[in-house]
């Protein structure tokens, strides 16, 4: 579904990605793991077009989307739940969701406000509240709901459970499991390797802007030295 081939990205004159190559399969959950500053978020930004790569190719459903503006990438069917949630504090929960509603993947079973409320019932009584009046967990639910309202073919979550209480974190993982079961393709970035291993089909470890390892959860569990070497665990 999504392929990155030899992607190199720079911030000004500083190179951050050194030939990232990875593949996301339809309906599967893939993770990007690695220490801070290794290039995970930059990879996401390169995919989304907010930091266009200088070289390499990014193909989504066969189309080269490398260097396309962010709004075009989103319209192709890639939904992003960004690091730090970045919900609009000056819009209400309802407005955050309604303002972004679209059906970019042309799915017949599309997400709408009611479906998001059913998926995240916690948000229902908060519909009239402004974005900045929500707790961290509610904000993350809203950020996921907002991305789902685009009806994306691929959902990317950057730091999916960062800064959340354990109970809320578990709720987010449960919801992501449900999304996986619905057949949605997901790219996950998170630091909770144990939780990631339960949900993911494939992992990519990124270090110093390049993919240094790839494999499934069993392979990751079988090589504990990877965690200490690349993840500092």
């Amino acid at each position: 579904m999504l392929e990155l081939h030899n992607v190199e990205t720079f911030y000004g004159s500083i190179q951050v990605l050194f030939g990232i190559t990875l593949t996301l399969d339809q309906g599967k959950v893939t993770t990007l793991i690695g220490r801070n500053g290794m290039g995970k978020t930059t990879t996401v930004n390169s995919i989304m077009g907010t930091v266009p790569p200088k070289s390499g190719e990014i193909r989504f459903n066969g189309e080269n989307i490398s260097g396309k503006p962010a709004h075009v990438v989103a319209q192709r069917g890639i939904g992003l739940v960004p690091e730090g949630r970045q919900i609009f504090p000056n819009l209400s929960v309802r407005e955050n969701l309604i303002a972004t509603a679209a059906n970019f993947s042309k799915s017949s079973d599309s997400w709408d406000l009611d479906k998001v409320m059913e998926f995240f019932p916690t948000l229902k009584p908060r519909l009239g509240n402004m974005g900045n009046q929500l707790s961290g967990g509610e904000q993350q639910m809203l950020a996921i709901g907002r991305a789902l309202m685009l009806n994306p073919g691929l959902l990317i979550l950057d730091e999916a459970t960062e800064g959340l209480a354990p109970l809320i974190r578990q709720e987010i993982w449960n919801r992501l499991q449900r999304l996986k079961q619905s057949g949605l393709t997901i790219l996950l970035i998170d630091k909770n390797i144990d939780d990631l291993s339960k949900i993911a089909d494939k992992h990519y470890i990124i270090a110093k802007g390049t993919v240094v390892w790839e494999g499934d959860s069993n392979a990751l569990a079988a090589q504990p030295e990877l965690k200490s070497k690349y993840l500092g665990i």
């Binding site: 709004h71 989103a74 970045q86 907002r146």
Partner: peptide, 23 residues
């Protein structure tokens, strides 16, 4: 929706673009 996109863009234009809007 037009106005919500405008208001949202004031706070975070990049985010609004990532949601599919040519701000």
């Amino acid at each position: 929706r037009f106005g919500r996109v405008i208001v949202g863009s004031r706070f975070n234009e990049d985010r609004m673009q990532s949601l599919g809007y040519s701000t």
